[in-house]
């Protein structure tokens, strides 16, 4: 969070045009912010695994196998079907950057 704050601040300082500002906000890719409702950061003990610390490839593989049904699941199969491959890849890449 602190890193993101500094980043936004610096970019605002160096602002050029209004349109440039949107790019300075590091928004999660479409859909990613919803994941945090169930998937906690490390240190929270629940039955739902954390996504932090996983590689992008791991998350992509898991989502694809949920979507295809290769990996049995309770709820993730239904959610994975709402995302295309590029969307899953973007979410995975974003989570892989979260510390």
């Amino acid at each position: 969070m602190a890193g993101r704050a500094l980043f936004v601040g610096l970019m605002l300082l160096a602002s050029v045009t209004p349109g440039a500002h949107a790019a300075t906000l590091e928004l999660p890719p479409a859909g990613a912010s919803s994941c945090g409702g169930c998937h906690a950061p490390p240190g929270v003990d629940t039955a739902v695994p954390t996504l932090h610390g996983k590689t992008a490839a791991e998350i992509v593989a898991q989502m694809q196998s949920f979507r295809s049904g290769a990996q049995p699941s309770t709820v993730m199969d239904r959610i994975a079907k709402g995302f295309t491959d590029p969307e899953i890849e973007a979410i995975a890449a974003w989570y892989a950057r979260q510390k």
């Binding site: 349109g19 440039a20 949107a22 300075t24 906000l25 709820v75």
Partner: peptide, 16 residues
């Protein structure tokens, strides 16, 4: 995004 002069991206939302 709007406050910083941008155009909001199309969102995806999940409910469970």
């Amino acid at each position: 995004t709007l406050l910083t002069g941008g155009t909001p991206p199309e969102p995806r939302l999940i409910n469970t």
